[in-house]
Design a binder for these strands. Structure first.
Lengths: 238, 238
DNA sequence: AGCGTTATGTTACCCAGCATACATATGATT
DNA sequence: AATCATATGTATGCTGGGTAACATAACGCT
């Protein structure tokens, strides 16, 4: 597991200018993040920036009623904690570990020092922020206009892109809380996708067996976001 | 009309550090924006940053199907064109003039020069960007969980905050395209609000007569966004 | 005044997704 | 093997918002 643990596994870190890497990498700390860990709370201050390598973090927005919806997904393509440099002190959305795994983190003060002093880091993370905003905007429209099944396809594809396998450890219930729909709705949609031969699943594990079919059944939102991410942050996985 | 035309009417400009104002204000150009004008196109490059004073601009995201939804509203509390300094060259969402009026604009190159050279502008617009992200996130969740009537209340309140009167020149059709719902749905919700004594309306004009009632019927999203904006950008209207 | 355009009102029907309730099945634990 | 917690399957009924079609009313123009 540990043999390949390197900051370069995170594409945002990997594509930093060399001089920034040299100053920043020694301060990175490897952490193992379990399922359900909360990296940031909406409205609370944070003290680390996280760069996932093998974990996936979901940014979730919660209503007073307890209802919620995911506004973006962060894997080895990005970072959690942009609020650090935006200046408002507090995070937009709750950062919830969706798939357990590894990440690197850096202390707030060290990150900010580099951000303020050398524009290289700033330009890089602002580009990522723009990608994040695209995700958020697309999610907003998707929530309005697309069906649960379309969104499930989108979500599976987005998660798959941030993993190295085609297996996902994930219950219907958890997916439902991400999409902001009922668990039964996810079960129903997953059942359809199974009957169509796109996925298999069993008790907390989902296996994608026909990715092309998922892409075909998904709404446009998946492709739009993926293309925008690879345009803004070239050198990424896709 | 012109007697009070000053950049200070835009709160983002008004709260800039003095030295930034001195360098930036001479380059500002006053423009009159008619209803329907498109300030930026999704995916296209822009060459100006706009600072509304009496107009309101809506950031709208469009799907291939032609369906759309507003992801945020910009009035004299903010700016249009954050893509300029995010680095991706292209805008997130279409910037559509929703309420005709005045704005100041500045050339891309001049804005960027100040952004890169003096951190004062940068910190200021990054704070605004965070407020924008809060709006987008809240909109995403609102689209998922709240009724048309709740959203109409929210939208009216948000628009009202960015105007000096309690009258809004706006058809049901236009509101529907902002909220991403049918025109009939807006007509129905507006009818209810009228019967409840909250608003009057007539052929493209909406008058709010009981603001407190609107706030009571609105979803929490209005207050959450307003509070976050005034926290991040103190000295604003509210 | 008459005309066409635009804004709003209204109806009928349909369906996705909601709330609720409960059944079943699989793994983990003892 | 028995038990329990968890994950998934299914059914009922309801409702908000969708589609579609059309009626009415107000203003702008000639």
């Amino acid at each position: 597991m540990l043999e390949s643990l390197s900051p370069q596994q995170n594409h945002l870190l990997a594509t930093l200018p060399d001089d920034v890497k040299q100053r920043l990498f020694p301060s990175l700390e490897a952490v193992t993040l379990p399922l359900g860990e909360v990296l940031q709370q909406s409205g609370k201050t944070t003290h680390y920036a996280y760069f996932p390598t093998t974990c996936i973090v979901s940014l979730v927005y919660e209503l007073q009623s307890g209802h919620s919806a995911e506004i973006s997904l962060v894997g080895n393509d990005g970072m959690v904690g942009i609020a650090l440099f935006m200046g408002g002190q507090t995070a937009v959305g709750k950062g919830l570990v969706q798939v357990a795994g590894e990440a690197f983190r850096i202390d707030e003060a060290l990150f900010l020092e580099e951000f303020e002093r050398h524009a290289g880091l700033m330009h890089h993370v602002l580009l990522y922020t723009q990608a994040l905003m695209t995700q958020m905007a697309q999610t907003a429209v998707c929530n309005r206009h697309h069906s649960v099944q379309q969104q499930l396809c989108r979500w599976l594809l987005m998660s798959l892109d941030r993993l190295s396998s085609n297996q996902l450890v994930m219950t219907h219930d958890l997916i439902a809380s991400m999409l902001g729909v009922r668990r039964e709705g996810v079960t129903e949609a997953a059942g359809k996708l199974h009957r169509l031969g796109a996925i298999n699943y069993h008790r907390g594990r989902i296996e994608v067996i026909d990715r092309a079919k998922l892409e075909q059944l998904s709404c446009e939102c998946y492709a739009v976001v993926r293309n925008e991410i690879s345009r803004l942050l070239p050198g990424g996985p896709s």
